[in-house]
């Protein structure tokens, strides 16, 4: 007989880590399975809206979350993503991962979101060869170079604010008529001297030899190549919810939850960016994680 956990938490970003801390403190037996620790928070640039920290970088906040998580004796499986969840005949759950199968009485899905891909020729070939989805991680490698950011929302602006201080020149390739995102960030980007914003423009290919040396852009029905050494893809996010076939989702693939973080399946809860909760913020994900753990605790208490 394998271990039967009270709760298996899928994901260890702000939602999953907070859920783990709350679940353990409620005396539940917890298993965490996760691809990585920190989630998107670990990839964020400057964070100025997490209460208690007037300013903290994404990696620093993620490290603090991780430190808090490791303070407890939590069974943690890293580098191990979920690939499926099943309900057993006994009313229990089975979580299938890339490395094993685990049983539990409840599940909290907190698997977050991942970067959307461009789906253009050259994207796969040049990944990590000039093309990256993480300006925070790889930005410093492009010091003094000409780079491009694909996208026009807050994540593109965040990348731009990091890169304007490092790169020689920054092109922003935005496929809408105007940049979106927060006004404060937008103003900072627009007023930077080394930025060229190309609105109504689409990227149609990534070009290069061993490393990226240009991008092909379509604007006003004309194609042209722009010489760049870096391509930062910032075109939004998609939920990591494919493995959760059991639960109901919205048209974006986000898991539907009620205000108690319950999904349509009794015993399965979800929290954070993978859900349809309005607003995706670190502090909201953390709060949702705590709610989901308390709901799972209540569900177990009522059953027993």
């Amino acid at each position: 007989m394998t271990n039967l956990y009270d709760v298996i938490i899928i994901g260890a970003g702000p939602a999953g880590i907070t859920a783990s801390i709350y679940a353990v403190r409620k005396g539940l037996s917890v298993l965490v399975v996760t691809k990585d620790i920190g989630g998107q928070a670990a990839w964020s640039g400057d964070i100025e809206n997490y209460t208690g920290y007037q300013f903290i970088s994404g990696p620093e906040l993620a490290a603090k979350f991780e430190e808090h998580l490791r303070k407890f004796n939590i069974n943690l499986k890293e580098n191990e993503g979920a690939v499926g969840i099943n309900k057993t005949n006994e009313g229990l759950f089975e979580v299938v991962t890339t490395r094993g199968r685990y049983s539990s009485k409840t599940i909290i899905i907190a698997s977050g979101k991942r970067s959307r891909e461009l789906k253009v020729p050259g994207e796969k070939e040049f990944k990590n060869k000039g093309l990256t989805y993480c300006a925070t991680c790889d930005g410093p490698l492009f010091r003094g170079k000409t780079v491009s950011i694909i996208g026009g929302g807050n994540s593109a602006l965040d990348a731009a604010l990091q890169l304007i201080n490092l790169a020689l020149h920054v092109y922003i390739i935005n496929n809408t008529p105007n940049l979106g995102g927060d006004v404060v960030m937008r103003q900072k980007v627009i007023s930077a001297k080394n930025v060229t914003i190309l609105n109504n423009a689409q990227v149609s290919a990534i070009l290069g030899d061993n490393l990226v040396n240009a991008i092909r852009i379509k604007k006003d029905n004309k194609e042209k190549d722009v010489a760049v050494e870096g391509v930062f893809v910032e075109i939004g996010l998609i939920p990591n919810s494919e493995f959760a076939g059991l639960v109901e989702k919205n048209e974006l693939g986000e898991i539907k939850v009620d205000s108690y973080n319950r999904t349509n399946i009794g015993g399965v809860f979800a929290a954070g960016d993978v859900t349809d909760v309005p607003e995706k913020q670190i502090i909201i994900a953390a709060g949702e994680g705590s709610k989901a753990a308390l709901s799972a605790f209540r569900y177990l208490a009522e059953k027993e």
Binding site: A42, A63, L141
Partner: peptide, 11 residues
């Protein structure tokens, strides 16, 4: 490594 990349810190 770079000082900002989380996996560098972890490694």
């Amino acid at each position: 490594s770079t000082s900002t990349c989380p996996y560098c810190i972890r490694a």
